[in-house]
Design a protein around this nucleic acid. Structure first.
Length: 195
DNA sequence: TATAAGATTTACT
DNA sequence: GTAAATCTTATAT
């Protein structure tokens, strides 16, 4: 994928960790109510399905909530966390394999004013780091769970940043201490912007 | 049927 | 630094 946008095949790959790493630097675009907002993906986490104790789909769990994880790659999985926050994931792998990449942080590109309004932060600097904040800034909510990224209001756009491997920092995931050994896996990727 | 905990953020002491 | 907000899923009666 050089210069262009990722194709369906990109999301159908079996190595969810590679997809998570390569999503860094791509533009994530939403078009809602005729308003376009977008940001550069700056932080992701991979969730490797049934073998990953930190995943909602660990051990083959399948509920009404995480049903979208079992869809084919290129589908959006949006769910409510702690009753308050909407978290956005990109489903990967083929249908029936519940792999997904959590978008943990973005850097605003288009529609910054709209994001400010959504976040109701007219004075303080707009913050879009953190999975809940990023999803809210883009206007994502559970009503968009299961939409197709190739035929819907959410799309993955062109690569805006081309980070060298040295700029991408891999590390353990956040907030999954309960997952024991799986919590230590280097499934989290981020790039230093100017934080 | 009831209770506890979670892929978090925000506000208050 | 600690706790509340708030809803779904998982586990236990």
């Amino acid at each position: 994928m050089k210069g262009g946008v990722p194709q369906r095949g990109f999301f159908l790959r079996s190595d969810v960790v590679s997809v998570a790493r390569e999503l860094i630097g791509l533009e994530l675009i939403t078009q809602l109510d005729g308003v376009r907002t977008s940001g550069i993906i700056t932080e992701t986490e991979a969730y490797a399905g049934v073998d990953d104790r930190a995943s909602h789909a660990w051990g083959g769990r399948r509920t009404e909530r995480n049903e979208a994880m079992y869809a084919r790659g290129g589908t959006a999985y949006i769910y409510l966390c702690y009753g308050i926050h909407h978290l956005f994931n990109v489903v990967t792998n083929v249908e029936g394999v519940p792999h997904a990449v959590l978008i943990r942080s973005i850097a605003p590109v288009q529609g910054i004013d709209v994001m400010r309004m959504r976040r109701r932060q007219t004075i303080a600097p707009l913050r879009t780091d953190g999975p809940g904040r990023a999803a809210k800034a883009l206007g994502l909510h559970t009503g968009l769970n299961g939409v197709d990224l190739f035929d819907g209001p959410i799309t993955i756009g062109e690569r805006i940043m081309a980070p060298s491997p040295d700029d991408i920092i891999a590390g353990p995931r956040i907030g999954v201490d309960y997952a024991e050994a799986d919590a230590l896996l280097p499934y989290r990727f981020r790039i230093e912007t100017d934080l």
